[in-house]
Each structure stands twice: as C-alpha cells, then as structure tokens.
Design a protein around this nucleic acid. Sequence first.
DNA 1: CTGTTTAGTTCCTTGAGGGAACTTACATAA
DNA 2: TTATGTAAGTTCCCTCAAGGAACTAAACAG
Lengths: 160, 160
Amino acid sequence: MQRTRFGDMACSIARTLDVIGEPWSPLILRDIYVGITRFDQLQRDLGISRKVLTERLKWLVDKGVLERREYSRRPPRHEYALTAKGLELCDLLLVMVRWGDRWTAGEAGPPALYRHHACGEISHVVPHCSACGRPMRAGDVDVIPGPGAETEPKPEPSGA
Amino acid sequence: MQRTRFGDMACSIARTLDVIGEPWSPLILRDIYVGITRFDQLQRDLGISRKVLTERLKWLVDKGVLERREYSRRPPRHEYALTAKGLELCDLLLVMVRWGDRWTAGEAGPPALYRHHACGEISHVVPHCSACGRPMRAGDVDVIPGPGAETEPKPEPSGA
DNA sequence: CTGTTTAGTTCCTTGAGGGAACTTACATAA
DNA sequence: TTATGTAAGTTCCCTCAAGGAACTAAACAG
C-alpha cells in the first residue's frame, strides 16, 4: 500500500502516530494493559491476522513500548508487557475511552467503567494544565512554534 | 486491503479508532485545529494524496467531526471546520503531543508549545479524575465491565 | 480567449492486511 | 513410541486501500 512515514515529521502527533498509528496497535496495547499478554490470546481476542499481530508486536517492542519476555523456557513461552513508555501511552487510551463513551456509546451506556484508586469513584479523565492545575482543553490553548520545529526527531530508542 | 471494521466492537477505544483511526485523520484534524482548513492547503501541508484527502474529509464530515461549509459562492469555495464533537477529539491530540514530546522529541526539544489561556503558562496536559480532581493515569485505575458491554454502538450520528 | 485557483475525480500501480495452512519446540496421554 | 495438544510464530496467496499523477469543472483575472 506504500504508506507515508510519519516518524520524520516535525510534529509530536505525527511521531506518536508513527509508533501506535497503525491499525490494531492501540487495541493491542489495550489488551496487554488489561492482562491479555500472550500471542494466541491476543490473536483470538482481537480477531487479528497472526501475520499482522507478529509485525505489530515486533514494531512495538522495537519502539520500546512493549517488552517481550520469556515466562517459561522448556517449553519456550513468551508474553508481552508494557514498559514505562508503553504505560504512558495508555493514558492516551483513557482519553480515547472518554471520547468514545461520550460520542459513540449507545443507549446501553459505556462498555467499560474505570474506578480511580485514589478516590474509589467511577470516573473518567479530564485533561488539566500541568502549570496551574485547572482544566485545559483543546479550545483553551494557543499553539506556538517550539525549539524543535524544523528538526529531526530522536534517532531511535536503543532499548525500553 | 480489506480492513476489519472497528466500529461494531463493544469498546470505546475501537469505536474512537473507527472515526479517526485511519492514517492521516488525526493530522487532518490537527491542521484544521490550527487553521489550515481548505482542501488545497491541507493537501500541500500534509503531502497527502488528493484522493485519500477527499475520502477522509468525507468520512469525518459523515461522522459529525467536521463540517463542510461554503465560505464563498460564486466562485463556489468550501472550507472545513471542527464541530463540538471534533474539538473534543483535539483533546486527544494534546495528549498525543504530550507523549510525543516526552518520548520522541530530540535534543532540540518539542516542535510546538502550548500556552494555557487561563494561566498564560507554557504547559502540557495531565489527565485528572473527573470525580476527585487528582491526577489519574493508566496505572491508577481498575477497569470493570460497564452496562454497554456486549452491545452494539449508537446506530449513526444524524448530524454534528 | 487564455491562464489561474479551488476543489475535487479518475486511473493505474504497489504493497499492506486478511485468512488459512504450515512449522517448530516442547509436554502429556495412550 | 507414537499420537495429540498448545504456544508462538512463519509462509503463501488474494484483495483492496494508499500513493501519485493526470484530468475535470466552475468561476474569475487579464
């Protein structure tokens, strides 16, 4: 299909898409986040082709988002786990969940609920400002050029 | 390519991906968010094929995320604008920006900066709990089944 | 009447995704 | 010892979506 590479653009959105923008990648991340960590489990749960699953897992491991680890040798068995970098990507999933719940959930309501450890309440995420702590939505900011405009991104992550 | 449909899954992440999961869609949204709103502008800025751009814009309008409006008749000219639904999707972009800045920005730093209207500071978004107001990250929640598990999503949005 | 701008549409080629069968390495049951 | 099962892939072929470039339509400018 010959896909345009997003990784070289001077844009953090494009660079993030380069990592998890391929179809299936966010759903693979979600599954591993909720404890579906093995190849066959993932394949069955998602209904993804084994070929594509292999490619995606390899890519996500290479990008340092997932870690492939042996949980048994003899027989050799592996599972996939989130790295710190990957867990932070799951914050993104929570924001996607919020939008999907608001705009795509039918009469029945949201497919899943989220309980916050700190307060025990069923709730959802709201983006806040790291500086003042108040809510910060897309309509509440000005975008201005940063120091890294017009430059290449980080070469490649060496490990996790 | 025969792509699996995500829109029918009982998962708000999959349903959100159904709307903006195709390659280019988030970048189109970003461009419109920052004021690049016309067909040729978008095509040049993104380097996207005109064919795919046409398809994506039509899809996003159908999904109620964008609005196609005439800014001149005679000659007939159109531009694309975010709906409320679309602007809320841009919250997602800000979270992607944050991750991209943290994990993919090189020595030069982030390509763009964001100033919060309320406080005037250059900052970034942090997901907070809608119930208690404290930070709420992917590691801070339990996922439990919701009422809409095992059901179909909303039929289709009629308008914006 | 020719050229330009905006907003697409059409056509062809390539290559990514789907699907199913096949492979390897081991464990267990008969 | 052979058959059966399982986990984790790999290989193969086919279809259809993305890229790219050329073409079209409607209006305006000179």
